[in-house]
Structure formats: C-alpha cells, structure tokens
Amino acid sequence: MSNANRTSPEPLPQPESGPPAPVRFDTKIAVLLRDDLETWQRLNVTAFLVSGLGSQLPEVVGEPYEDADGTPYLPMFRQPVLVFEGDKQMLVTAHARALSRALPRAIFTADLFATGNDHDNRAAVRAVPRDGLDLVGLAVYGPRNAVDKVLKGARMHR
C-alpha cells in the first residue's frame, strides 16, 4: 500500500468541559528562608520580602478581586510564591547567584528584627557591606530556569 492511499487517523474527541489545564508560568517568584528562623520570623520575613517584588515589578501583580456582592479587594500576585529553606551558606550562595544573573531581588537581614520602621531597616542594610550581610531571607523573580539555578541546593519549605 502506498503512502498516497493511507489516511491519517481521526483526532481523538476532546472533552467539551472539565477543569482547565493547569497554567505553567515561564517565570517564578521564590523566597528562600534561613532554616533556623522561628515560625513568626519566617512569616514576617516572607511578607516583607514579597512586598518588595510586588512594588517594583507590576507584571507580577494580577487584577483586583471582587466578591459576588461587589465588595472590592486588593490584587495579589498572579502566580504562586514558592518558599524554600536552607542554611546560612545556602543564603549566601543564592544571593551571589541572584546578583550574578541580575535578577530582581529583595533581602532581609537579621539586623532588621531589631528595627521598627522602614527608615531604620534601610539604614541597617546600608551599614553593612554586601559580603557581610547576615541574610535570613531572599526573594527572587525571573525566568523559571534562572530562579531554579539561583535556588539549586535549597529545599522546599516544610
């Protein structure tokens, strides 16, 4: 039988409805926390770190929300925030990788636990050279594969 006489198989029928296919983002928002933080510190650091990304990168923020009664709510990130943990050296390594790839990033240092306002927070970071920062948290955003390389060796937060 020649190829000219063959017919291609008919496509399989597609379901008319069902759950939408999961969205796979080509970017990633990730937070890396030092593994020796108290629970309250982990939550606080994560909140502070991601606020930096949302304020400087409008593309990561979705549309405002509204409930069925028309009550408006603030917009949130358009994609999940993945939270990782690692030891102090992992933070230092990830920070260097994020810098070398010029990825948007936010940092939180141990000194910030002793301050109580934005002015003092910035002064505490400004007072320490980059290689001397006592990092307890890092947030990064960028292409999925670049963020994966920055976080290589970190584990998902439990």
Score class of each variant (00 low, 15 high):
M76N: 07
L57E: 02
A94P: 01
R105P: 10
P15E: 10
L91N: 02
T7Y: 03
L138T: 01
V136K: 04
K28D: 07
A47E: 05
P13I: 05
T71L: 05
D69Q: 04
A106S: 12
T39A: 13
R24S: 12
P19N: 08
F77S: 07
Q79C: 08
D131S: 13
F108I: 02
P9I: 12
F84I: 08
I107V: 14
R126V: 07
V92E: 06
A47W: 06
T46C: 06
L37F: 09
E10T: 12
N121K: 08
G142N: 08
P9W: 07
L53I: 15
A96L: 11
A98G: 08
Y73A: 06
A106Q: 00
L151V: 03
R155C: 10
L135N: 04
G142E: 07
E10S: 10
D118A: 14
R34W: 03
N44P: 04
P20E: 13
Y73V: 00
L138S: 08
F84D: 06
L133N: 03
Q79G: 03
M76V: 14
A47N: 12
L53M: 13
A4V: 15
A47S: 14
G142Q: 01
A146T: 11
R97K: 04
A96W: 10
P58H: 05
P22K: 05
P13Q: 11
D120A: 14
W40R: 03
S51D: 15
G18E: 02
V81I: 14
P11W: 02
L135Y: 00
S100C: 12
A154R: 06
L103V: 06
D148G: 15
T109P: 00
G86H: 00
V92I: 12
D111P: 08
F113C: 06
A123W: 08
D87L: 05
R130A: 13
A47G: 15
V125I: 12
V23M: 10
F113K: 07
P19Y: 05
R101V: 00
